[in-house]
Design a protein around this nucleic acid. Structure first.
Lengths: 191, 191
DNA sequence: ACACAATGTTGACATTGTCAAGATAAAACA
DNA sequence: TGTTTTATCTTGACAATGTCAACATTGTGT
C-alpha cells in the first residue's frame, strides 16, 4: 500500500473530501477537477475514472454534505420524544446551527439541478432527501399522536421547513446586515 | 450610426441585456464573456472596456434584475394604502409571483458576494437593496399607523421577508415536488 | 499464467477569462 | 478647422480548465 503509488486505492472518497475542503476554503468557484486531482496526488484526468464529469463530482459532494447535515439533525433530537411539539423547534434550531457552522454549505447544497430532490409528503419515500426525512418523521409522529389529518400534518411540515429555511437564508447571508442580535427575532421567525 | 460598426454606441447596456437573456435561456453556467460579446456583435475583449471582469458584469446584471424585481413589487401595491396590513400580503404575493414568472432569477440574484446587500432596519438607508426598500416602506407606514415600537415594526418586517423568501425558495425550486396544489398551503406559509 | 476489467498517466484540443499592444472613432481643445 | 486626447474596439497571446483518446499499470478471476 505504500510502495505503489499507481493505484490510489481510495480515490473516489478522497476526491469528494478534498473537493469539499476546497469549497470550505475558497468557495465553489475555486474548485476545479484538476486542482482536486492534484490535492489527491493524482494526475488531472484520474477523476474521470470515478465521475463522468465535474457536475457528477459536485453532485457527490452535495450528497456527502447533505448526509452530514442529516446526521447533525438526527443527533440534535436523539432520544427526544417525536410526539412532543417542542422537538420540531429543536430540529429547526439544529437546521440553523448547522449552516451557522458551515455557512458555505447553504448555497453549495441548495443550488444546482438534481440536488436536494425532495418530495413533500408525510409518507415515506425511498430516497427522499435525507435532511427532509428527519423533519418528516417527526412531523408524522406528531400528526399521528395528535390526531391530525394527513393534510394538516403535511401543512405543518411544509410550514416548518419553509420558515426555518427562510430564516436561515437571511441569518446566514453575508450580504444581510442586522444591527443587533438575531436571537431577539428568532422566536418570531419560527413560530 | 449605421455606417460605422466600430463603435457600438450602447454596448454596456446591451451586454447586460444579452447576458440576462442567456441566463434566461440556459442558466448562469451557459454565460461567458466571449459569448455575450459575440451576441452583441463585438469582439471578445470589448466588454473589458465597460467591466473590469466577469464578476462586474454579473453584478450589473443582478442589479438590473433587482431593479425589475423592485419595480414589480412597487407596481403590485400602486395606489394601495400602506397602513393597511393587507398590503403586506399583496407584496408577499408579488414577491412569489415575480419568481414564478422568472424562476431562474431566484438563484441568480440571491447568489454571490456583493449582491443584494441589505441592511435590516426600519429606517431609510441610502442604497439599501431596492426590493427590500419596498417592504420596508410599507412596514414603516404600518408601524407608525398602529403605534408599534421600532423594534416591533422591524420584527414584523424581518418576519415577513423571511417567510416569503422561504416559501418562494420551496415553491420555485425545480427539485421540490408537491403532490397537489401550492395554493392550499400558501396561507399557512405566509401568516 | 493469462485475459480482462479497473484505474491511472500523458498528450491533445476547445473554451474561457484576461491582458497587452495597437487601431479607430468621438470628443475636447487650440 | 486641425490636432490632441480619451474612450472604445480589435487582434494576438497566455494560462487555466473540462474533457477525451490512447496508452500504461495493477488487481482479479479463470
Amino acid at each position: 500500500m505504500e510502495k505503489t503509488n499507481y493505484h490510489h486505492g481510495n480515490l473516489r472518497s478522497e476526491l469528494i473530501e478534498k473537493a469539499i475542503a476546497i469549497v470550505n476554503e475558497e468557495g465553489e468557484q475555486g474548485l476545479s477537477i484538476r486542482r482536486v486531482a492534484g490535492d489527491c496526488g493524482v494526475s488531472y484526468a484520474a477523476p474521470y475514472a470515478h465521475f463522468k464529469n465535474k457536475e457528477e463530482l459536485l453532485l457527490a459532494c452535495r450528497e456527502y454534505v447533505s448526509k452530514q447535515f442529516a446526521d447533525y439533525l438526527e443527533n440534535s433530537i436523539a432520544g427526544k420524544d417525536s410526539t412532543n411539539p417542542e422537538t420540531l423547534n429543536v430540529l429547526g434550531n439544529a437546521y440553523l446551527e448547522f449552516f451557522r457552522l458551515h455557512p458555505v454549505y447553504f448555497n453549495f447544497v441548495f443550488h444546482g439541478k438534481e440536488t436536494c430532490k425532495m418530495i413533500l409528503t408525510l409518507d415515506e419515500v425511498e430516497g427522499n432527501y435525507p435532511p427532509f426525512e428527519v423533519f418528516r418523521k417527526v412531523c408524522l409522529a406528531l400528526t399521528e399522536r395528535h390526531g391530525l389529518t394527513k393534510k394538516q400534518g403535511l401543512a405543518r411540515l411544509i410550514k416548518c421547513w419553509s420558515r426555518v429555511h427562510g430564516a436561515t437564508a437571511l441569518i446566514i447571508s453575508p450580504n444581510v446586515e442586522l444591527h443587533g442580535d438575531w436571537s431577539e427575532y428568532l422566536k418570531t421567525l419560527y413560530d
